[in-house]
Design a binder for these strands. Structure first.
Lengths: 147, 147
DNA sequence: CTGCAACTTAAAGTTCACTTCAGCTCAAGG
DNA sequence: CCTTGAGCTGAAGTGAACTTTAAGTTGCAG
């Protein structure tokens, strides 16, 4: 089997055919057509779908994913190096996301002791009562002071 | 100032008034009314809003948050102990989420070397080609084998 | 007591990420 | 050849999480 039908791609990627068509409309993936107008996918498309799934796990919007995928070469099948570059960028984003969640976890651990979530005492929730400086909301977590 | 107007609560929590009304309709927060039908909030409601914001950071749906908040006592203002119990439960969820993302990051790091995201060689993307066993998609990450 | 910002409501609108539907055509096995 | 499952399209529907709109009311400062 040289190319994949939409059913094949769906089965191998775990993404519904309707979602694959949707991704194509959105310019995230590409297909060629048979004489009878059916989609056929290069195996390389599987990598794109994989990338999309991973990025979604990390909480990235399709729009951002589209932009990232657009940085891959259009005229040729992306090489390992192309994918490496993209992966490295995402590893970075992923690390940032993890850092935010870890900070959140650690602060929450501290708060379990005091049972607070209090605006008066707990910098987890909202330091803006004492430090109405850097905007509103849980600033200590989303945007902590330089250490 | 004994109670907060919706504008006060919005300013202090960083959540739009329309969102606060929405949360009330959804049973996530509560208010009393003035004789003129305007909302007034106890300061304690601020904790609820804080909790909602934090849970959303972690990627929890409002429905789940609603369920969690429903475990707080209705007849009295929640104590520190009440909030502690809830926080401990969420710390757990948060840790699980972090673990998934870390696994994703580590596997992605391995993949940067090979530039793959390949179905043939990379278990990050889809082990189901070699191990079409536990279902489809990035199983190694979402549901890794016991170590 | 007046003016005006802040509040009220129900209903409709928005964005994201898809899914479902209706009404077709295509491709492959018996 | 014929049936049947897989695929096609455009349009409409879904659910989550809000926001916006329109039309009216309240509350406080001056």
């Amino acid at each position: 089997m040289e190319t994949l039908t939409i059913g094949d791609l769906s089965a191998r990627s775990g993404v519904a055919p309707s979602a694959l068509r949707f991704y194509e409309r959105e310019g995230l993936i590409h297909s060629t057509r048979t004489s009878g107008n059916q989609r056929r996918y290069e195996r390389a498309e599987l990598r794109r779908v994989a990338f999309i799934k991973i990025a979604q796990q990390v909480g990235v919007s399709l729009e951002e994913i589209r932009t990232a995928l657009a940085s891959l070469p259009e005229n040729r099948t992306p090489t390992k190096a192309d994918w490496s570059r993209l992966s490295a960028r995402w590893r970075h984003k992923l690390q940032e996301r993890i850092t935010v969640l870890e900070r959140l976890r650690d602060q929450l651990t501290g708060c379990i002791g005091c049972g607070c979530l209090s605006l008066q005492r707990c910098n987890l929730v909202n330091p803006s009562d004492q430090l109405a400086l850097r905007g509103v909301g849980p600033q200590m977590i989303l945007n902590p002071p330089a250490e």
